[in-house]
């Protein structure tokens, strides 16, 4: 059942993004930024945690989960360290993804040549 839920949720997010991309003149970068902000917003009232429980991997793989993890880390940082934790906890959960993307693409760019 969770496979069905994750198919529906991830598919719906991508279809909405595609609709925005087709109907307006925004670039893919704009659409991605909109969805990151949306994910950060949905974490205010803990809506996104319920979505992850419902859809599993389908809610974790779209870029909305990136924004959700940023807000989540800040609020968890506030609860443990106080006010400075908002600044310190921002990348607690997302740093693995960012570091992996940077390290992998750095070393692969040294090995491979660009293809036209």
């Amino acid at each position: 059942m969770i496979y069905f839920n994750s198919f529906i949720f991830a598919g719906l997010v991508c279809a909405i993004a595609q609709f925005i991309l087709s109907k307006t003149k925004l670039t893919p970068g704009h659409v991605t930024v909109i969805f990151v902000c949306l994910g950060a917003f949905l974490d205010i009232f803990n809506i996104y945690d319920k979505l992850i429980l419902w859809a599993g991997g389908g809610a974790l793989v779209p870029i909305t989960s990136f924004g959700h993890m940023l807000t989540h880390g800040e609020i968890a940082g506030y609860e443990t360290e106080g006010f400075m934790g908002i600044l310190g906890g921002t990348f607690n959960l997302t740093s693995a993804g960012i570091t992996a993307a940077i390290v992998v693409s750095f070393f692969l760019a040294l090995i491979f040549k660009p293809k036209d």
Partner: peptide, 26 residues
């Protein structure tokens, strides 16, 4: 001419498959 419905359908199916792949990996 860009067919919006077709593009949305393709995005829905491929995005959903990505979700299933993520769930399988987890």
């Amino acid at each position: 001419k860009e067919n919006t419905f077709y593009d949305c359908l393709v995005a829905f199916v491929t995005g959903g498959l990505m979700g299933i792949l993520a769930e399988i990996l987890i």
